[in-house]
């Protein structure tokens, strides 16, 4: 099997749950081998550890009652988590192993990018694509968790969480937890200034982005690392053509942003969305702007200096906007 999909869509959870259901608690240890990127996974490990495990005879399942509860199929499972971080060599060493022992061992590869798995391996697996979660499902799950943890969610709160996490459920849950923590703390600090219970306050905090409150928007955005709309708007305003000197205001806005520690990737993403969905910008300009964005993104990924990269991006976009 080959599971692939974006982070936080439940790939690892699925396979682990499957393994548990197949073997039950007693056999799990002897029948399942889980290797992930935190384990050493060079070619030697694939040759030795994986092969040894694959070669082992099946352990005898307990009889009677146990068999009825857990199916215990006659094969072992090797889970290779985060398989896309395995080297090419290690992957090709797997090929033969997979075939030879297929009678008693099944492999499950879990990865984010199916393109990083070499073709010979991919063709030996049945593929399962994990789509990023749609809003309804993720929202429902979040509500369930909130309920189980005794956190009350307000109107629109889940939606805000789902939106900021972009379909990554784990991220959403982390946000939820952090928000609960932080707000729980803040209520303590304020000494019930708002006159509301802890849980209630939490819900308020989370749905604040919709309402645009005063302090709490900051909290949520802080958690998600989202740059406040005001900051982005300042930059955008500075980039608008018309006045002759574009450089000064843009440079000032960018310097401010860098000093405040906003992550350049985040700025990039938000700016991109703002400009792309701005109907007043003609399509031809958008084409050029997207080019600029892609180049800037590449630079950031390569570890270029953020200040220069963002400044360059802003100025070039301003230049394009000024053309039309």
């Amino acid at each position: 099997m080959l599971f692939y999909g974006p982070p936080g869509t439940g790939k690892t959870s699925t396979i682990l749950a499957l393994a548990k259901q197949l073997y039950g608690p007693e056999l799990l240890k002897s029948r399942v081998l889980e290797l992930n990127a935190s384990d050493e996974r060079g070619i030697s490990i694939v040759r030795e550890k994986v092969k040894d495990f694959a070669r082992q005879q099946l352990s005898n399942p307990p009889t009677g009652e146990y068999r009825k509860r857990w199916p215990c199929p006659p094969f072992k499972i090797i889970v290779l988590d985060e398989a896309d971080s395995m080297t090419q060599d290690a992957q090709s060493a797997l090929r033969r192993t997979m075939e030879t022992y297929s009678r008693i061992t099944r492999f499950c590869l879990v990865c984010n990018y199916v393109t990083r798995i070499i073709d010979p391996l991919a063709s030996r697996c049945s593929k399962f694509r994990f789509k990023s979660l749609d809003r309804g499902n993720a929202g429902r799950r979040l509500e369930e968790i909130a309920q189980a943890e005794g956190v009350k969610l307000g109107e629109g709160a889940t939606e805000a969480l789902v939106r900021t996490s972009e379909g990554d459920l784990r991220k959403a849950i982390t946000f939820l937890q952090s928000a609960a923590r932080l707000v729980g703390a803040e209520t303590m600090a304020k000494g019930g200034k708002k006159g509301k219970g802890d849980a209630d306050d939490d819900a308020m905090d989370v749905d604040e982005p919709e309402l645009l409150g005063e302090v709490d928007v900051k909290t949520v955005e802080e958690i998600a690392g989202v740059v406040p709309a005001a900051t982005i708007n300042t930059l955008l305003a500075a980039m608008q053509p018309g006045k002759r000197a574009v450089y000064e205001p843009v440079a000032a806005a960018v310097a401010e942003m860098v000093a405040d520690g906003w992550s350049a990737t985040q700025v990039l993403g938000q700016l991109y969305e703002k400009i792309l969905f701005d109907d007043t910008v003609p399509d031809r300009q958008k084409n050029k702007i997207v080019m600029v964005f892609s180049e800037a993104d590449k630079r950031l990924v390569d570890g270029a200096d953020e200040h220069l990269a963002v400044l360059d991006l802003a100025l070039r976009v301003a230049g394009v906007l000024g053309e039309g």
Binding site: N112, D168, T174, G261, A264, Q266, L300, G303
Partner: peptide, 15 residues
């Protein structure tokens, strides 16, 4: 900066 931190790590931490 968070630019060079891979997304899976970012989603596991409180920023």
């Amino acid at each position: 900066s968070t630019s060079n931190i891979i997304a899976p790590i970012r989603s596991r931490t409180l920023l």
